[in-house]
């Protein structure tokens, strides 16, 4: 048994090592280039965007790790078992609606969803929660209302975003979460440090377990956010946005273009509405596509998902999310635009 576990951990470590090695060389290369260029504009642009994304995202990772550690150490397993016994038809929308009560953006919801699934929540419900919470949480909806109220469209955009976000979370959760937790979640090489028995009633034991889980999740998720931020910053530095926005006058092309821009920009969902509202050259439905797709798929999240889930999760999520968001944005354009 121990040998098997050790083999699994070793295999996981090896799988993690490859992208991390590549990433390490990539980032080191970029830094060296920046150093040699010194005052060159590209290096300055890359570094400021790179650091800004990380500085903004890491506290949300921390918040997610905090909630995740609380769930792991202080919420009894029987609470999750009770929820897991509910019919799936209730679990998935219920979990998606749980996003209303969790005020963090997309970076924070990933560690929490992972923990919920590991603790017994159905994977489809865990994914629905993960995808819904960055869109449905109250801070995001409030910022959407504030951004669009200047154009007299606050309520329409809030309702459109919440509805389409909810539909996307339920559909994607159902489509991608049909397999078991073991098939969905990647094993983590560092879990040996934090998987000790936290069910001890000793308060000091629980405190130690809580701190270990919190710091373990932070450093594990944090490195993938750094990687994603480097990719987003590199794309922003190298690719002119006009390449995409110049061809984006019709609702279908506009929605696809703004989804692509959302992936490149990798914005926090709590502030992305202030950016979306400035894309007035795009139809309103396309702006909604930006607001719903961005919190679910972007460059920084791709690495976080890749580290958390198995089997080309990002690709499968894109295949599900693009048509759902596109259809929703066209419907919104037809009704409101």
């Amino acid at each position: 048994m121990d040998i098997q576990r050790s083999d699994v951990r070793s295999a996981a470590t090896s799988r993690e090592a490859r992208p991390l090695l590549a990433a390490g060389f990539l980032v080191a290369g970029l830094v060296l280039i920046g150093r040699s260029l010194g005052d060159q504009a590209a290096a300055q642009t890359f570094v400021i965007i790179f650091v800004a994304i990380v500085v903004e995202a890491l506290p949300f990772i921390l918040l997610g790790a905090l909630v995740s550690a609380l769930l792991e150490v202080y919420v009894p397993d029987r609470a999750f078992e009770r929820v897991a016994r509910l019919p799936l038809g209730l679990q998935i929308p219920g979990a998606a609606l749980g996003g209303f009560a969790f005020p963090v953006c997309e970076c924070g919801s990933v560690p929490v969803a992972r923990r919920l699934i590991a603790k017994g929540l159905h994977p489809a419900a865990g994914l629905a929660f993960m995808l819904a919470s960055p869109i449905l949480n109250p801070i995001v909806l409030l910022s959407t209302w504030l951004a669009y109220s200047g154009r007299g469209l606050g309520l329409e955009m809030v309702v459109g975003r919440a509805l389409l976000g909810m539909i996307l979370a339920i559909v994607a959760g159902w489509a991608l979460g049909s397999e078991g937790a073991a098939d969905l979640l990647k094993p983590r090489s560092d879990e040996g440090d934090t998987s000790h028995d936290h069910r001890s009633e000793q308060p000091s034991e629980r405190r130690r377990s809580f701190v270990d889980h919190l710091s373990g999740d932070f450093v594990f998720m944090g490195k993938f956010i750094v990687l994603g931020a480097a990719l987003a910053a590199a794309m922003q530095t190298l690719i002119p946005q006009s390449l995409v926005s110049g061809v984006a006058r019709t609702p279908i092309v506009g929605s696809l273009a703004l989804m692509a821009i959302a992936v490149v920009l990798s914005l926090c969902s709590e502030a992305d509405a202030f950016v979306a509202v400035s894309f007035v050259q795009f139809p309103l439905g396309s702006q909604l596509a930006f607001l719903v797709f961005g919190p679910v798929v972007d460059a920084k999240l791709a690495f976080l998902y890749g580290a958390t889930f198995r089997r080309r999760f990002v690709l499968r999520l894109v295949i599900v999310a693009v048509p759902v968001v596109l259809a929703g944005s066209l419907w919104f354009e037809a009704v409101i635009g």
Partner: peptide, 10 residues
């Protein structure tokens, strides 16, 4: 490495 990082004309 790039202490004067910032957004400019590029």
């Amino acid at each position: 490495a790039v202490p004067d990082a910032g957004l400019g004309s590029l």
